[in-house]
Amino acid sequence: MNISNSFNISASALTAQRLRMDVVSSNIANAETTRGRYVDGKFEPYRRKMVVMQPYQEKSFANVLQSELGEPDVGRGVKITQIKEDQAPFKQVYNPTHPDADSNGYVSMPNVDVLKEMVDMISATRAYESNVTALNASKSMFMKALEIGK
């Protein structure tokens, strides 16, 4: 039965959006982290992380078989291929009493913009919701198909 394929498509998107949510959480949690990584004997602040999404490319045996049988090729969902770091410069904040302040009294703060993260978070939530709707639609169709011939 190949309706399970549409379950897999929606499920892959749910996984991807949840991971995106995890990344947003990490960014917000570390919005003030000045010691994100130890590089060349000194601390570097946390860098904002972003997800890279791509349509799912890999073919399973069933996919190959289906396309060989001449069935139209639909997509196979979405996948997060990598988590990239934002290369934007760090924010410089004047705070001479901070333990990580440089000789001029400036502290490098993470390049996380909480506003941006909030927007990303809402976007991920809405995308998650719409995929749940699609999944429920597939499910109710599947349930309806079980009624054939009753």
Binding site: A13, A16, P55, G77, A127, N131, A134, S138
Partner: peptide, 9 residues
């Protein structure tokens, strides 16, 4: 379902 899954791709 695939279109919705890739809405942010």
């Amino acid at each position: 379902a695939n279109n919705i899954a890739n809405a942010d791709t």
